[in-house]
Amino acid sequence: MKEINLTVNNQPYRLSVPPRRTLLEVIREDLGLTGTKEGCGLGECGACTVLMDGQAINSCLVLAAEADGKQITTVEGLASGDKLHPIQQAFVDHGGLQCGFCTPGMIMSAKALLDKNPTPTEEEIKQGITGNLCRCTGYTKIIESIKAAAENMGGK
């Protein structure tokens, strides 16, 4: 077992985890934050995407021990009370989701993209979410949603 300290959605946690435990398992099972999804478990679908120190990562591929001392943001950490984050709001308004299973990971990838590049081109948006599979939407409305979010956030 290894002692780790990490901050998830601004809450500090101290946990004792087995060496093989992934960050995804910690988030879903130890912290009960089930918004982050496990699709393939192999880093190919992006459903488990969270932010670690601002970078979008596949949490199924990161060992919990590697997250020691890091700042993690999951989909549950975006809204402020009832007020959705502008990216979440844009997905709602522009139909950027259907079954919703890829949505948390997709939104986290969009956040990482817009944090770095607040005014992305369509091509840059596609690049930004290319690690996230979506089988329902055909991506069109997801791309529209991220474009609208960038506009609504006014390049911030």
């Binding site: 879903r28 934050l33 089930t34 918004g35 982050t36 999804k37 496990e38 999951t74 989909v75 549950e76 975006l78 809204a79 959705l84 979440q88 709001q89 997905f91 709602v92 308004d93 139909g95 989701l97 259907q98 919703g100 299973f101 949505t103 948390p104 939104i107």
Partner: peptide, 19 residues
Amino acid sequence: VPRVDAWEKVTGQAKYAAD
């Protein structure tokens, strides 16, 4: 109109079987 389940899905509150 937006989907009636959009809010639950974008906030990660929608529960799937594995949850």
